[in-house]
Amino acid sequence: MIQWLKNLFAAHSDHERIRARPGETLARQLALVIDLNVCVGCHACVTSCKQWNTSGSAGPLADENPYGIGPTGTFFNRVQTFEAGTYPQTETIHFPKSCLHCEDPPCVPVCPTGASYKRREDGIVLVDHDKCIGCKYCAWACPYGAREIDEERQVMTKCTLCVDRIHDQALPPEDRKPACVKACPTSARLFGDIKDPDSEVSRAIRERGGYALMPEWETSPANKYLPRRQTPVAGGLSTPNRTITPEGRMER
């Protein structure tokens, strides 16, 4: 009974609160910034994510028909390819996509169990798979398709921003980065606190015109994307690639 009250108190005493309140403004917001200017679509971020997380706190991540017809499994990160323009003015753009850790995540309030939550400490949006009932409602509530149910465990899964790496004091500091960030051969994946104006990510967003996906829904994704740039002459300055990012784009 005493313990029960203690917990009651503890669970709500602010300094112990893990979960961010709806609309609460956070001091830190960790995020990825994806540089489309150098991403070559190698999928290193896809499988490095898979291998880290399947044996990690969010795992295991099941694979159905691994050696059969229609192999399909749980991944937190996908690399897609888009094509702009017509031959010969064709641009091929590789486009990695994982959870954007929205600052106003529509996926969280809809969750009936509280399994979906946003961490107050660093803004990471997580699923507590010990609570999740697999109703999939949060996935419906994510405009970006960033959530995948694990068909084996029947709980919702998503990018954890490698929360079990980045805060792991047992790891050497230089390793406290998401698996995909460490893997990326082109360093197209920057990781850091977008609330800290001097962080690498904040600077990149400022200086390189980082933008958000589907701004129309005001989910204010924490992850941002850096647009293509073009160097017209050797030794010259690189400028936004006009064929795929017309004027005005950069001001977003």
């Binding site: 888009f82 589907m214 129309e216 994307y225 795929i244």
Partner: peptide, 8 residues
């Protein structure tokens, strides 16, 4: 376009 930010 809005989904990718690629304004082509």
């Amino acid at each position: 376009q809005s989904a990718t930010g690629i304004m082509a």
